[in-house]
């Protein structure tokens, strides 16, 4: 075997460099982030927190929630609505597809609703890669200059990720309730506090409906109605690929480029030695035995 000359070493170096630049072009060799589609298993937790903002002349607001402690705090502002909900599995695949939510807030003839803040909580599960469980919320805030009779919302409950999920295992980081219903303190039911704590999460859900519809013209004895249809769509979820998934995609790139380089480099090597481009000294490999003997002596 010919010894490695300086030139040969350099050529080899360049080739290896080229090899790796080609491999790591654009996305690089390793798959660092990937995504998949899944329809989440969403269930409405039947937790509601409602604040209805009234017109100025009647002052203040009306509030109600499914949390007894919150209701106790409201005093005169408490007004119990009629809430009816239904979750529908349209394609009968075992996963709910939408929530029909209707809230009728009885009002006196002098009360006028100008704005609404509503929190609905959901349990949200992803299954395909990592088993991800969280309790999330849909926050709806809408107001209008004219006193309303009905608010119609038709939107999607979308997943928002700040960081990719992991590729396996159980993830219950956010399996904590959005509203601490056991707490007797007013602070725990403060909307700013609830939203601030919720937005701190890396994974949240939001209600996407840019244009809630206000219907105006409420008769004196009619209640204020919130009519919401919330859909649970299929989500594209980004995640960090696991070790074997990275290897699966990497080795194909590695081998395919390596084969070409090996072939090209082989040709160059042959050309160099056959045409004696550099001075080469043929050296015969000494038998192992002799070397050993020599060393002994």
């Amino acid at each position: 075997m010919p010894s490695l000359t300086n030139l040969q070493f350099q050529v080899c170096n360049i080739v290896i460099q080229q090899f790796y630049t080609l491999l790591s072009a654009h996305e690089g060799l390793w798959l660092k982030r990937s995504s998949y589609e899944e329809q989440p298993t969403v269930r409405f937790q039947h937790q509601v927190l409602l604040v209805a903002l009234l017109g100025p002349d009647h002052g203040g607001f009306l509030a109600w929630s499914t949390f007894p402690a919150f209701n106790r705090l409201q005093g005169d502002h408490l007004r119990v609505p009629l809430v009816s909900t239904r979750e529908e599995d349209k394609n009968q695949d075992g996963k709910m597809d939408m929530l029909h939510f209707k809230l009728e807030l009885p009002l006196q003839s002098t009360e006028h609703v100008l704005g609404v803040q509503l929190i609905l909580t959901f349990s949200y599960r992803l299954h395909r890669m990592s088993t991800f469980v969280m309790q999330s919320m849909a926050f709806l805030q809408s107001s209008f200059a004219v006193p309303g009779s009905q608010l119609y919302v038709n939107g999607d409950l979308r997943l928002q990720q700040k960081h990719p999920l992991s590729c396996g295992g159980l993830d219950v980081r956010y399996n904590v309730s959005v509203i601490n219903g056991t707490s007797p303190f007013a602070r725990d039911y403060d909307l700013t506090h609830i939203v601030a704590a919720y937005r701190d999460r890396n994974v949240t859900t939001v209600l996407m409906d840019s244009n809630p519809i206000w219907l105006v013209g409420r008769a004196a004895e009619a209640p204020f109605v919130i009519n919401a249809i919330i859909r649970y769509p299929v989500e594209v979820i980004s995640y960090l690929p696991g070790f074997w998934e990275m290897i699966k995609f990497a080795w194909i790139q590695y081998v395919s480029i390596l084969l070409i380089f090996l072939w090209v480099f082989e040709r160059i090597k042959r050309f160099v030695f056959q045409n004696q481009v550099v001075t080469t000294i043929p050296v015969t490999i000494m038998p192992q035995g002799e070397l050993y003997k020599e060393h002994l002596s």
Partner: peptide, 26 residues
Amino acid sequence: QSQGDGICSVKKHEVQFGVNAISGCK
């Protein structure tokens, strides 16, 4: 079902099959 002032109304809300509901009054 409650009236506008939160007092129990004579009117009642019909339970619909498959629809979960909550209501109350004073």
